[in-house]
Amino acid sequence: MRSLKRTQPAALFCYFAAVTLTAVFCTSPAIRGISLAGGLAALIAAGEVRRPKDLAGYGVIFLMMTALNPVIVTYGNTPLFYLMDRPYTLEALLYGANNGLAMTAALMWFRLFSVLMTSDKIGTLMTGSVLNSFGTALKLTLRYVPDLRLRYREIREAHKAAGLLAADTWIVRLRSELNVFMSLTACSLELSARTADSMKARGYTLPDHTSLAKRPRRLGDFLLTALSAGAAVCVCTAVRGGRLYAAFYPEVKTECPLYAAFVWAALCGVPLLSVIKEQIKWRSFAPKG
């Protein structure tokens, strides 16, 4: 995954945008399935998924979306059984499964996105002297929510350890939790003020900032951007031409041309291919004999 980590943030951003948006908005089960397989392979290659248990969350979401859709939607020609006098149809079940595919695929790709795109990298997407300042502010904003969650945990632990978190009645419990929230607000504002002081003391308010981030792009960055755009255009063209579609009601009809599936698999396979390429390269570097 090293080479993807070294990729220009802008190219990486285009790649993830192409994969996730297409997986969500193209209703073809083939495209969504390929996206899911690509995302899963990428997470395994990145070491984010080590054992089946790590996929439990995704499994629950997929199963819930699959099983719940026929409870709400009763369209479809093939009732499997009746639930409170409402048909539970095969078509609605498959529609739910198709949406579950899109959701789990998107979650997997978002997880990979968070591994590869740190808030600092997102900040470096901004170029130019004015946007550099904006980039710093953006980085801080992106870090704010995870930091706040961490601080909430610390403050709640501090209240708990100090014996201030009573739980005798629900009113007392509510007040204790409210106290944690008030401490969190005061401490967060104080820390923000101190960080602002630190920024001011180190010239953040000065005009004409420069950046340490490297701007020149490598061929690989251009290729990745071109592949992302090309694959997305290919899928969109196939959808517009009526050759890539999925309909579930009243009966399931779906079609996916081989070239679209191949192009899409190539795009979703980029992380896995990059890991395979790295392993081959490292093996070739290893001393022989």
Binding site: T118, S119, D120, N132, T136, K139, L140, R143, L191, R194, T195, D197, S198, M199, R202, G203, Y204, L206, H209, T210, S211, L212
Partner: peptide, 18 residues
């Protein structure tokens, strides 16, 4: 309280960048 960026390199670059 002082750090603004996420990593050491970014933190060291912050002042000269500004």
């Amino acid at each position: 309280a002082a750090p603004v960026t996420e990593d050491v390199l970014g933190e060291l670059a912050f002042l000269p960048e500004n």
